[in-house]
Nucleic acid binder design. Structure first.
Length: 570
RNA sequence: CGGGCUGUGGCGCAGUUUGGCAGCGCACCUGCUUUGGGAGCAGGGGGUCGCCGGUUCGAAUCCGGCCAGCCCGACCA
């Protein structure tokens, strides 16, 4: 490509509305333009990067036996009604009607349609199957943000596995785990596989691949000592033991006028430090007032409650519901002496005594609460948000919490979709068996964004060779010097002949402009050809990663660059 | 959905408080000079001031409504 003919609209200034590095640099470097919130056009450079990312994904999917297909983006509502998701998924699912008033929707994922195809499978002999496609998804996210990180329209590689048994599913799941590790490695990222909540996808097990980044939206718990890693939505940890002073008697009420928070109670009474309090949260679960108990200094992870109770139908209770059910306002709530209400308690409270909690009378608390004696038979469910420094659940060493981007997610779906749509095969003894499925996703654009987030500096993007829009730019320092232009062109042609992705910067611009643009768009290698160098028979090869420059005789430039690029292609 | 902020030429912004010719920098076009880190001089083109309505002799500016975008939170397959 000749830069003078290429459409690479770089901007000198950062766009004003861009915060995240990927957003700033991809717009400024002329890779993408926004159409509306969460919707982006790919310009030539962006398209080149996406193509390379997709190529790597395809290669690794094919390597584990994936067969590429392409399914539609507009689906009949009917199929989604059969699996229940037409009604279950609210908000982000875009529904509409055609001229015949038929319910349609924009695909936010493709479980239904792949499963529908799988209903044509008839015999166990046809299994296992692994099907995938790279296709547009549309999710009407309430808040797109972070450039390409969280968008509404995006391309996803989603694959679906079909097996006769859970054991077969395990095999395909494991194959994906390894393929994903390889994909993210080749994309130049350090992705950590973590145990995750499956959300509304259903299924027992899911693993997310996370790339550490301040621009991320998820927190993961990792243990540097033993390698334990989990999303905070699922992570557990130990708690440092606390020795409780004895309190032989029944709980004793005491006046706490005006005190509504854990912190103010702890500030007012020596015996009521936060870790000696029982935090009582009132939720409405399935229409029923429910008390959630945590240690005073611990925080609720609501997703754990969703996962453990198996329902999305829960929310914090309103003030009036609380007063009606308990006789007091938030700030003076407790579970002691409460009967007829569901009580869920975090295990960090197990065995604790001499605790402080609300008395269910405004401005009154209780001290001397013995959990096992005074709060009979709660449901013990881990509800706690793990914090940095908590002891690792596996090895006891302090864990870290890291903000991360979810670049891939693999699920064991089980038989949910196959059962709903009747995808069965006949087994060896002639009986119908429901197919066991897995689904596995990688967001292409989000991965591009994640790569940028982990590969940039003050000058711009620093693409890994594997996904760079061009692997090398030949920068012509002086366009009206025929010897320079001739030598540069010869190098450019030589690189192309050697299968290198090269662009020649033949614009009639000052060198500074060309250098700055090359750095902004992040081309890994720059060959600088100028009159002084030509006179000495050399060109310069500059590495974008560290700015290091190597002086190379003209005749050796092509093989030298080819060699270095080959070593970095992954 | 709640809170905060913003919409003026392709990009970045001033002008709005106190109504009175729509401006600046970059980018773009022409010419000359310049040419190894975002050049200089001279000339030039380009804007329904987000949209609709109202007030006024007169609205980018004041009032009302709407739309869009960004950030924080909620939410998030």
């Amino acid at each position: 490509m000749r830069w003078s003919r290429a459409y690479i609209p770089t901007l000198r200034d950062d766009p004003a509305d861009a915060e995240a590095a990927n957003h700033r640099l991809l717009v400024r470097g002329g890779f993408v333009r926004r159409l509306m919130a969460g919707s982006w056009s790919l310009l030539p450079l962006g398209k080149r990067v996406v193509d390379k990312v997709e190529k790597i994904i395809r290669e690794e999917m094919n390597r584990i036996g994936g067969q590429e297909m392409l399914l539609p983006v507009v689906h009949p509502g009917e199929v989604w009604k059969q699996t229940g998701r037409w009604d279950d998924v609210e908000g982000i699912l875009v529904k509409f009607k055609d001229r015949r008033e038929t319910d349609l929707l924009l695909a936010m994922t493709h479980e239904e349609i792949f499963t529908l195809l799988a209903t044509e499978l008839a015999s166990y002999r046809q299994l296992p199957q692994l099907w995938y496609h790279l296709q547009t998804k549309f999710r009407d996210e309430p808040r797109p943000k972070g450039g390409l990180l969280r968008v509404r329209e995006f391309t996803m590689k989603d694959s679906y596995s079909f097996d006769l048994s859970p054991a077969g599913l395990d095999v395909q799941f494991e194959a994906h785990r390894q393929a994903y590790a390889e994909i993210f490695r080749r994309l130049g990222m350090k992705a950590i596989p973590v145990h995750a909540s499956s959300g509304t996808m259903g299924g027992k097990e899911s693993v997310e691949f996370m790339v550490e980044s301040s621009a991320g939206e998820d927190d993961i718990v990792v243990c540097p000592a033993c390698g334990y890693a989990a999303n905070t939505e699922r992570a557990t940890s130990g708690v440092a033991p606390i020795a409780d002073d004895p309190w032989p008697d029944e709980p004793e009420p005491f006046a706490t006028p005006g005190i509504r928070t854990i912190a103010s109670l702890a500030g007012a009474f020596d015996f009521a430090q936060a870790d000696r309090q029982i935090k009582t949260l009132a939720y409405v679960v399935g229409g029923e007032l429910t008390l959630l108990l945590l240690r005073g200094d611990h925080e609720l992870m609501e997703q754990k409650l969703v996962d453990a109770l198996g329902t999305f139908d829960l929310r914090p209770a309103q003030d009036d519901e609380i007063v009606a059910g308990l006789g007091a306002h938030p700030g003076s709530l407790g579970a002691v002496g409460v009967s007829g209400l569901r009580v869920v308690a975090d295990p960090a409270l197990q065995g604790r005594s001499n605790m402080v909690t609300g008395a269910n009378r405004d401005d009154q608390h209780l001290r001397g609460v013995d959990v096992s004696r005074d709060i009979p038979a709660p449901e013990w469910i881990d509800l706690r948000l793990v914090r940095p420094g908590d002891p690792c659940v596996q090895c006891g060493q302090p864990v870290e919490v890291k903000r991360s981007i979810e670049v891939g997610h693999i699920f064991k779906l089980g038989t949910k979709y196959a059962a709903a749509l009747g995808a069965t095969v006949t087994d060896e003894v002639g009986e119908d068996q429901t197919i066991w499925m897995g689904s596995y996703g990688i967001g292409v654009g989000r991965n591009v964004a994640a790569i940028v987030e982990s590969h940039f500096d003050e000058k711009g993007i620093v693409w890994p060779v594997s996904v760079a829009p061009y692997e090398v730019v030949v920068t012509v320092v002086k366009m009206d010097d025929t010897a320079t232009v001739g030598a540069a062109d010869e190098i450019y042609q030589g690189l192309r002949a050697g299968g290198i992705d090269a662009i020649i910067d033949d614009r009639d611009e000052r060198p500074g402009v060309k250098f700055a643009d090359a750095e902004l768009i992040g081309i890994p290698y720059r060959v600088t050809v100028g009159p002084k160098g030509i006179a000495a028979g050399i060109a310069e090869v500059t590495h974008r990663v560290d700015g290091s420059t190597e002086v190379v005789p003209l005749a050796e430039v092509v093989p030298r660059v080819a060699e270095r690029i080959a070593a970095e292609r992954l």
